[in-house]
Design a protein around this nucleic acid. Structure first.
Lengths: 217, 217
DNA sequence: ATGAGACCGTACCGTACGTTACGGTTCGGC
DNA sequence: GCCGAACCGTAACGTACGGTACGGTCTCAT
């Protein structure tokens, strides 16, 4: 593996053609799980195996690039910390919760998490770390400022934002992710997701909502 | 696969020798993940591959038997519903929470869940279903009577025991299981586990504890 | 137009591993 | 002591798949 870095390393993202290939991998990953073969990828993406190896180095490189490509596709809508009140905080939390439930119940996310779990069990721990980083930890980084703004505004009470976030995470995800990963047929309807988001938010507010009312009051 | 049922089917459990083999598989699974080979199993268990195939049919059969063997080892301590009060309910819940955290953070559980996730991603969905059944659902079956007894005694309030259980599950497990499955180094100390169990129980009681005091009061 | 790359399709190679086959050894029943 | 069953250790087989090599085609700059 002493080749001159096989392209696709740090720096600019994949070219349009490479993106097409990665999307093909993504689709194949959903259909076949991690037992997809390089030959199948080449056929699906209408490219040669030689090109795959040239662009991505090896099978792991291809999977890694795919995970990162997918992760790069989810855009982060910034949260406005202006004019925060209980209503806007509540709807922000509900939004986070429903978005998150939609993500973890998507075929793509399930497939990617499966790949991450598989790789975490082997020496190649990278993929698992990437999935974790772009999933659970990215969510934490996005949500914690909201929680802290809520505390700032006197709407929430907690000692540690990380701990508070994990509570919220637990209330939202519950057993959904592990059940889906283990193959449970658990179809979440739109209405069900929204309802769960509302419930989780209410529970979180019941645990961490300020009893004293907003600070400014 | 039209052999006369390869032994190890329904009915009596594995023989002592077979249990030794399954324990060897378990250890190997923890060390090697699901990429363990039949040769490695035979070597570790000091038995021949021929015997493995005779007893367990094929690789999947061996893994399935292993998962079931491990599942059969966790015994269920019955919960006494007599003399239930807030203190005993609280300590029951704390016990469940800490037991559960200890289970899901054990090397064995992580390895087994990984195998389940892998198989759930392929056509062979059985192993995932078994892990789910012996894990998450078994816990639900054990805990729900406790919750219902608590409600009966006027200590808890909830509409649906399943929903209440899932809330408890979320508060206890939070992000622990997915992080461990994805390879996060997350060492849980004894004290940490017990603390989390207490916290989760308190949070659960804050959400579902009866506001009106015990019924008998 | 032509030569250089980039890339496609396919054939090929090496290996790892699931599965089977076989010779040798142990052991319980007669 | 002897027979057969169960089992061990190892060798062998077949295949699937990661990775490489190569001939053919297209594009594009000169």
């Amino acid at each position: 593996m002493l080749q001159t870095t096989t392209e696709m390393m740090e720096g600019e993202g994949p070219t349009a053609r490479q993106q097409d290939v990665l999307d093909a991998v993504l689709r194949l990953l959903v259909e076949e799980g991690d037992r997809l073969t390089m030959t199948a990828v080449a056929r699906r993406a209408s490219c040669s195996k030689e090109t795959l190896y040239k662009w991505f180095g090896d099978r792991d490189g291809l999977l890694t690039a795919t995970v990162q490509w997918q992760a790069s596709k989810v855009r982060v809508p910034p949260v406005d910390r202006k004019g925060l009140n209980l209503a806007s905080l509540t709807s922000s939390l509900e939004r986070f919760a429903s978005d998150w439930l939609r993500v973890i119940s998507s075929d793509t996310s399930i497939a990617l998490n499966r790949v991450g779990v598989v790789h975490a069990g082997s020496d190649k721990r990278d993929l698992g770390a990437i999935v974790l980083e772009r999933g659970r930890f990215a969510l934490g980084r996005r949500l914690k400022p909201v929680l802290e703004a809520g505390r700032e505004a006197g709407l929430l009470e907690f000692d540690d934002a990380e701990t508070a976030f994990r509570t919220f995470f637990g209330l939202v995800a519950r057993d959904v992710q592990i059940r889906l990963l283990l193959g449970d047929r658990l179809e979440l309807t739109e209405a069900g997701i929204d309802g769960d988001a509302v419930r989780a938010t209410q529970q979180f507010l019941a645990l961490h909502g300020a009893k004293t009312g907003p600070k400014a009051l």
